[in-house]
């Protein structure tokens, strides 16, 4: 197990390295000069070739690409000082660069964006389980009934609609057309500043949209796993012993059925944490996804780089974590 985790970690680091290299190269060899965006911004579009030259020189874009990549990596571990034209910016470890737009260290801004995205992820994921698991269990208990069939097909229907359209319609109709009071002002409001109610009501619609959409999948998984679990021998034994149905279903059946659900949940939670661009864009929640979208539009290269790396790291970690947890929950799985 330990060896496995180490192996996975090594391959994770390798992936992150490759991803960061790919992003680095992409910008380096992208068509316009990598210094062009900051030069335009700093000079209010008075970026003459001579000035562009200054920016390229101070940002190190005249060095070979591997030298600069080395500096970037060095910055992550020990921090560095970044020079832009004649201004110097201190960037402590782990240094992900300085935003071209705000001149703040990217790391600090990243940290300040995490609560919004985390709020989405925690609420959305909670609703996945809250809706998904009980409905799935109920459907499995009544397998084959009309209710079960109706449920399965209606959930299949919902999950077949592109998510962003579902979210967009939810927002347009509930917030704009019907002006439902609870949903009137979507967005991220920090608990510490605006209080828990404002935070809750700002997030609620996004959670509901995510929850309703995402729970269909959990229902399917739970139902499938429950159906399988309930046909196992030990359940038959339990039935033969005369245990009450409730005990059989919840204590014996559900416990076994939850294992695959937990794994999916872990990965989904990671995906949500890694940035929910559509959710944030539609419900105007200024988290990491929103930030990334803004950065791409504003050509804020250090931020784009940081968001992509952040997402990759989160995904790799959540995958690893899930595999480990899976092996603990289900003794049949042996990691190698």
């Amino acid at each position: 197990m330990f060896a496995y985790v180490v192996k996975r970690l090594i391959s994770g680091v390798l992936v992150v390295t490759l991803v960061s290299m790919a992003i680095f190269l992409l910008f380096w060899y992208g068509p316009s000069s990598p210094a062009q965006p900051i030069c335009d911004r700093e000079t209010s579009n008075r970026c003459t070739p001579a000035r562009l030259d200054t920016y390229e020189r101070t940002l190190g874009y005249d060095n070979p690409v591997y030298v600069e990549y080395g500096k970037f990596v060095e910055g992550i571990f020990v921090g560095r000082t970044i020079t832009i034209a004649s201004s110097e910016y201190e960037c402590g470890a782990p240094c992900l660069g300085v935003s071209f737009r705000t001149k703040q260290p990217v790391k600090e801004e990243l940290v300040s964006r995490i609560p919004a995205t985390f709020s989405i992820a925690i609420g959305g994921a909670f609703l996945y389980l809250l809706f998904g698991v009980p409905i799935g269990v109920a459907a499995a208990k009544r397998r084959g009934s009309v209710a079960d069939k109706a449920l399965v097909s209606s959930f299949l229907f919902i999950s077949s609609i592109p998510y962003y359209l579902f979210a967009l319609l939810t927002w347009l109709y509930l917030t704009i057309t019907f002006e439902v009071p609870l949903f009137s002002d979507t967005g991220y409001f920090p608990i510490t500043q605006d209080g828990p109610f404002k935070w809750f009501s700002g997030m609620f619609l996004a959670w509901v949209a995510l929850g309703i959409f995402g729970c269909t999948q959990y229902t399917r998984f739970t139902r499938g796993a429950m159906v399988e679990a309930l046909s196992e021998d030990y359940i038959r034994t339990a039935k033969a012993k005369g245990l009450p149905t409730r005990t059989i279903v919840y204590k014996h059946g559900l416990r076994a059925a939850l294992v695959p659900v937990v794994t999916i949940f872990g990965i989904d939670f990671g995906t949500l944490l890694a940035g929910t661009i559509f959710t944030e864009r539609i419900f105007e929640i200024q988290g990491i996804g929103w930030w990334a979208l803004e950065a791409v539009q504003g050509r804020d290269l250090p931020v784009v780089q940081a968001t992509a790396l952040f997402s990759a790291v989160i995904l790799i970690c959540s995958n690893l974590l899930v595999d480990v947890v899976y092996s603990v929950l289900d003794p049949r799985v042996r990691l190698s």
């Binding site: 991803v19 992003i23 992409l26 940035g275 791409v296 992509a308």
Partner: peptide, 21 residues
């Protein structure tokens, strides 16, 4: 390994970055 690597690249971000270039 490459399959796993591509799975960890956030698709939307990548598309957002690559398309304009």
């Amino acid at each position: 390994f490459f399959i796993d690597m591509f799975l960890t690249i956030p698709f939307l971000l990548a598309a957002l970055t690559i398309a304009p270039i």
